[in-house]
Design a protein around this nucleic acid. Sequence first.
DNA 1: CTTTATATGTGAAACTTCTCACATAAATGC
DNA 2: GCATTTATGTGAGAAGTTTCACATATAAAG
Lengths: 238, 238
Amino acid sequence: MHIEIILKHVYVKQVTKRIVKNSLKRIFLYRACLVRLKLMGVEKVFSYTLADETGVTSDQVRKDFSEFNIRGNKRGGYDINDLLDNMEKLFHRNKDNNIVLIGMGNLGLALSKYSKFVQRHMNIVATFDIDPFKHKIRSGIPVYSMNRLKEIIDRFRVKVAILAVPEISAQEVTDELIRQGITGIVNFAPVLLKVPPEVIINNVNLCDELESVIYYVHLQNKDNGLKNLELLYKDMKY
Amino acid sequence: MHIEIILKHVYVKQVTKRIVKNSLKRIFLYRACLVRLKLMGVEKVFSYTLADETGVTSDQVRKDFSEFNIRGNKRGGYDINDLLDNMEKLFHRNKDNNIVLIGMGNLGLALSKYSKFVQRHMNIVATFDIDPFKHKIRSGIPVYSMNRLKEIIDRFRVKVAILAVPEISAQEVTDELIRQGITGIVNFAPVLLKVPPEVIINNVNLCDELESVIYYVHLQNKDNGLKNLELLYKDMKY
DNA sequence: CTTTATATGTGAAACTTCTCACATAAATGC
DNA sequence: GCATTTATGTGAGAAGTTTCACATATAAAG
């Protein structure tokens, strides 16, 4: 009997889907542009304006909008406020979203202070840490012990959590979060979490992000690097 | 004359390519698994072991290895150490990679303390901030003023930078980094940076990561949500 | 009010990525 | 040492994504 057969039975089947399809990622990209253009006083955009700004083709922009049922005005282009409204609705930004943050280490602390979340109607209502020395208000948001998790999740109807705990406890904490009703997690621990299929996991691996840049920078420095790079580069970064 | 025509001339064409193709992202995924399995004392894996662990199909695993010229043993599977060696080479982890970090706000500080970078041979040799009050050693890494950037980049032959500055100064700092020889940037500012085509940009947008989870959680809660979700979910998260 | 110019929206074609299926190689058993 | 089993590696086919091209709508101009 091989060891892999044992492994099969020890582990629950991994469910790590790609939660963000490319077209949705591009919507984020377009929105970033639109916000900037709006600040500059622009009121109307055309598919090729956004295309130029984001490095996507104008066909792609229109197809993407079409997919999410965002429509413009033939010959007249798109109204920036209309577009932004549509996107707000898409991301449910009309209502506030309550979030919990688990793990108040360096990264957790930084995330709890990240002001952009609030600007985008995502409120971290409480943070949690097993270390009792961290149980005080830092950065204006209370830090609780894990045994108050259920209470807070219920009171604020929290569905989404940010996980910034050490990798060693990530799975354990995830299991507890799901037991208490969390259905979506942004995971900063460099671990592949095992979760039931209905739970949404979005992994953000800081090392991987850096390493992939290093990979392409090295590739670029090779003699025939640029050709190789162009090949790998033919798609857009969303 | 329409405003978009003006815009075309004001802005340099955006070059934001997708720097990480899916197969490469999956390689990171496989490696995360392999590291864990190795810690558990496993020495050999088969494509379907990795497949089960990562939620990818076994065909995909083999195809991916094939693409990066990583080969196993027919009938014998893959040796974990061999695989990891291959991946180290792929990411140039045999040699050390010197990195600079710009912006020592909350996030920058957290990143400068992130121990995983060092474990993976990515050394932040110096950090920079415009605020002179931050010019002291925090977290063991020196904090310099921006006018020492060139000196440090040259001395440590730095090619890659982490950008954790406010969005307002992100473009300006980027221009300076590129002038001083940086060719790869992990950008945490929620801005689409304009860079020459040979410069690698990897954007990490924390709000977008959270919002995309919220998007799918809401989708799931709708009546017919699950069907929709399954459709969007058919691909894997790499 | 009619004409013209131009930007959208979308099927169809081209291209890319993934899955399937099987030939091939190597370990195991007899 | 031969037969058998089983996992890899890879063309071929399927599925998905992007680009193309044009019909359609509408703003602007005459």
